[in-house]
Structures are given as structure tokens and as C-alpha cells.
Design a protein around this nucleic acid. Structure first.
Length: 222
DNA sequence: ATCCCGAGGG
DNA sequence: CCCTCTGGAT
């Protein structure tokens, strides 16, 4: 419980230097960090990311091939009803809400965006089932527009690494984006997710041999 | 703040 | 069995 070590009195400048070392370590450990959600277009990434809410991307990837075959673009999705989508995504959590959102999502993409996925944060957020996290994922991974999407992994790691004391994802995102160079935001997002998924897990993190050990505020706490 | 919600890991 | 998973809408 009690934090054995930390950076409670760390200056902003020291934190910035530490963030820089963390970035270097992540680049060395995860040079090819990118999304693990299978997709071939902004449309597919958008749908996959909506499905990924509170679900593992492995379970999403297991379902999307059949889903994308039946609904290859926004125009096909627009003609769907939630009940038609449910069978394709039943194995994913929260499937009823997601089926409803996807059906509405298709209609809105067609009605208001010509069937294309908008490449603007404010527009993306207006879409059903799309919040700040999903919108930023699409911006960064589909359009190459710098953004740090904060999900469960980023929230946990920002805290453990003492890169942010905030609890609200939007504030954590702001802190992280101020700590890392803009052209590294998308990489940092993916690298921290992979680090969180495979090493710095929620339970029983594998601190032994961790590439971020020396710069971690929680080292030794597990 | 609460609800949604299946699958895999420990 | 309990916890967690690239959250969002109400």
C-alpha cells in the first residue's frame, strides 16, 4: 500500500528529464509499437475501437473479420439494425450498447459525413459510441494526427510512473502531451499500452527486468 | 454515479 | 471465484 519510493518533491524540470529517459527506454524496448487492432481503413479502425471499449483487442480481432465482411463500409453499416449486428459481436462485452451505437454510427457517417470518417476531434466526438479516447485513437492511428489517447493502461501507467497525479483521462492526456514531444505522442500512446498490456499489468506487474525500472515512482512497490 | 457485459487470466 | 480489458451514454 504505502509507496516505498516516489517523486513527490520532484521538480517539473526533473520530471521532464525523466519523461525524456522513459521515452528513450520505450523506443529501445518497443521500437515498432503500434495498434494491435486489425483494420484496413479509418472506417475499420473506428468500428474496432468502438468495440474495444472495456474489452481486449484480441476478442475484438476475433469478431471483426466477419463483421467487416458483412459491413465493409459506412454505407452498409447505415442500413443495419442493432439486432443484425449483435450476432457478430456477442462474444465482446457490452454488445447491446455497441450494436446500437454502431448502427447509429453508420447512419450518421452517411448522413452527415458522406460516408467518410471525419479527421477532426470535435466531429469524431459527436459520433455515437465515440468519446475522447476513441476519437484520439482514430486521429492518431488512422490519420497520423498527434494525440495521446488515455485508456485504462495509460491511466494506470501515468500514475505508477508519476507522470500525472490526475485521475480524469482528459487531464492525464493533457499532462502527458505536455511532457512528450508532439511528434512522439502517437508512439508514446502505443508504447505505453503495450508496456501496460504485457509487462506493467494491473495485477502482478513484471517489475523484474523492466526497462523503465530506474525511472519508475512505483518500483519495488510490487 | 451507475449501467452495460462476455471472455480470459490468476 | 474475482479482476481486468485501448469507455461511453444516461
Amino acid at each position: 500500500m504505502a509507496r516505498k519510493s516516489g517523486y513527490s518533491k520532484e521538480s517539473q524540470k526533473a520530471k521532464r528529464v525523466r519523461a525524456e529517459r522513459i521515452l528513450i527506454a520505450l523506443e529501445a524496448a518497443l521500437p515498432h509499437a503500434t495498434t494491435e487492432l486489425s483494420h484496413r481503413s479509418p472506417y475499420e479502425l473506428l468500428v474496432a475501437t468502438v468495440l474495444a471499449a472495456q474489452a481486449t483487442d484480441k476478442s475484438v480481432n476475433a469478431a471483426t473479420p466477419a463483421l467487416f465482411k458483412r459491413y465493409p463500409d459506412a454505407f452498409h453499416l447505415a442500413k443495419s439494425e442493432p439486432e443484425n449486428i449483435e450476432p457478430f459481436i456477442k462474444t465482446i462485452g457490452l454488445y447491446k450498447a455497441k450494436a446500437k451505437n454502431l448502427s447509429l454510427l453508420g447512419k450518421k457517417l452517411v448522413d452527415e459525413y458522406g460516408g467518410e470518417v471525419p479527421s477532426d476531434l470535435r466531429e469524431l466526438i459527436k459520433l455515437p459510441g465515440v468519446g475522447m479516447k476513441t476519437a484520439k485513437v482514430v486521429l492518431g492511428s488512422a490519420f497520423g494526427i498527434p494525440a495521446i489517447a488515455v485508456d485504462t493502461h495509460l491511466t494506470r501507467l501515468a500514475s505508477r510512473l508519476a507522470l500525472s497525479k490526475e485521475t480524469h483521462p482528459d487531464k492525464i492526456s493533457h499532462d502527458l502531451e505536455s511532457l512528450f514531444p508532439r511528434d512522439k505522442w502517437v508512439f508514446v500512446h502505443h508504447a505505453l499500452i503495450l508496456h501496460g498490456r504485457y509487462r506493467c499489468t494491473a495485477r502482478n506487474p513484471k517489475c523484474e527486468g523492466c526497462p523503465l525500472f530506474v525511472d519508475c515512482a512505483s518500483r519495488g512497490a510490487w
